[in-house]
Design a binder for these strands. Structure first.
Length: 424
RNA sequence: GGAGGGAUAGGAUAAUUGGUAAUCCACCGGUCUUGAAAACCGGCGCCUUCGGGCUUGAGGGUUCGAGUCCCUCUCCCUCCGCCA
């Protein structure tokens, strides 16, 4: 949520930022509603002050056994007017909220300007894509040949965009989850969280999924439960409506969760394999920081995610999303893209974002270091998408005979297994 | 799912037929002190257009006025049933 005060005082700056995002919002209409609300609120508070004064007087007279009929009559009128204004304020406030909640965060000035991912800026590359002296397969061909990935049966059980992992593939995902969580907790200072995988609407609103992105989510019928699309939602909302102690900041959490996405509007994209599923595993990192620290923390967060790929020996690149490619709640996002031999391309495996105070306003997450509470900054990043990491390992570590070598860092988590072969 | 009990500030506890949230602990600042403790004084929830306004789990209602009366909902606890 953007700061209504900023909009009031400097609408031009916000207009310009939204244009860079290629998002159309009627700011004048919002300012109009805001002015209405402020006027009504001021009038109502004046009347309340009068009511409070007179009520004290009434109480005093009654205690003294005196008559207060004149004051009561006058207050009846004031009371009615307050009620009317209160209804007006509530109605106007609701309209204002509706309009403000669909305004995206303002892109940071360091972003490349552009209308989509073509304008993203390459920041750095790490590692070298493996050279094969044979034609590398993609993970679907590999997994099916090894008998460890079963998309056909998954379709029978659930439908398209699901996968059954079997034997070493299942073990691989479990190993990756533990490996990632261990790395972040032991080496990067994060506290492990195991959150609810179902959340209520308030939580979805807090991190920005609602109200605008209903179509991307799964909801349970006849309840207020939503399946989380990322652990970011429950973990960020841990501190919703709280005022945190300054000494606790920055707070670093990491969490494993399955993620559920309807993938509405992505028909025809990545239909093959594990790239885009309705359900996938992810380890997520979430930070709550003081405002002046958040940009440094974004760099560290991104490095924490990169570290996982480095340990696994997977080549990757980091890009800064352009103003047009940026997600709704983010002010700046680095995407980490891993090399996939099966596609001969770098594909997103992590997204690390600074949301500045955007989510903190929506979720009302503050901290206190002086007299007045201030909004924290929130950040999060995948550390990493587990399914995509697993398929990256399959494709990058495949051998001429169709087997897959297990990266050394992962072997302790795989019971010492060095290789995945047919019937292993 | 059924029955009962509960929710007041960080914690703990009060509030006449409804009269406008009191007190203790903890914490912060000040006085005093070499320093600290004690004692005393002041703070000790949020918003503000600095006039004030709001705050008793949430939201409505009655009333000039609601912690208190009425309705709806949420969460917690106990017991029964079910269940991993």
């Amino acid at each position: 949520m953007i700061d209504i005060k900023v909009l009031r005082e400097n609408p031009a700056a916000i207009r310009e930022a939204l244009e860079k995002r290629h998002t159309a919002v009627d700011l004048d209409a919002i300012l109009e509603v805001d002015a209405q609300r402020r006027k009504a609120l001021y009038e109502m508070e004046q009347l309340r002050a009068e009511q409070n004064r007179t009520s004290g007087e009434i109480a005093k007279r009654k205690r003294a056994g005196e008559d207060a009929a004149d004051l009561l009559a006058a207050m009846k009128d004031v009371s009615d007017r307050i009620k009317g204004l209160d209804d007006l304020v509530r109605e106007v406030d609701l309209r204002l909220q509706e309009q403000i909640l669909v305004i995206p965060n303002l892109p940071d000035a360091t972003l490349p300007t552009g209308k989509d991912s073509a304008a993203n800026r390459l920041e750095r590359q790490w590692g070298t894509p493996p050279a094969f002296d044979f034609e590398p397969k993609d993970h679907v061909a590999l997994g099916e040949a090894l008998g460890i990935l079963d998309f056909e049966r998954a379709a029978k059980i659930a439908g398209a965009r699901f996968c059954v992992s079997r034997g070493p593939a299942a073990q691989l995902e479990r190993a990756l989850i533990n490996f990632m969580l261990d790395t972040h907790t032991r080496e990067h200072g994060y506290t492990e969280i195991l959150p609810p995988f179902l959340v209520n609407s308030d939580s979805m609103r807090g991190t920005g999924q609602l109200p605008k992105f209903v179509a991307d989510l799964f909801k349970l019928e006849n309840t207020d439960f939503w399946l989380i699309p990322t652990a970011e939602v429950p973990v960020t909302n841990i501190h919703r409506d709280e005022i945190l102690d300054d000494a606790l900041l920055p707070i670093l959490y990491c969490a494993y969760s399955p993620c559920f996405r309807s993938e509405a509007g992505s028909y025809g994209k990545d239909t093959r394999g594990m790239i885009r599923q309705h359900q996938f595993n992810k380890v997520e990192m979430v930070k709550f920081t003081r405002p002046e620290e958040s940009w440094d923390e974004l760099e560290k967060l991104t490095q924490n995610a990169e570290r996982i790929l480095q340990k696994l020996g997977l080549a990757y690149q980091v890009v800064t999303l352009s103003t047009g490619d940026l997600g709704f709640s983010a002010a700046k996002t680095y995407d980490i893209e891993v090399w996939l031999p099966g596609q001969q391309a770098y594909r997103e495996i992590s997204s690390c974002s600074n949301f500045t105070d955007f989510q903190a306003r929506r979720a009302n997450i503050r901290f206190k270091r002086g007299k007045k509470p201030e909004f924290v900054h929130t950040l999060n990043g995948s550390g990493l998408a587990v399914g995509r990491t697993a398929l990256a390992i399959l494709e990058n570590y495949q051998q001429a005979d169709g087997s897959v070598v297990v990266p050394e860092a992962l072997r302790p988590y795989m019971g010492g297994r060095e290789r995945i072969e047919v019937n292993s």
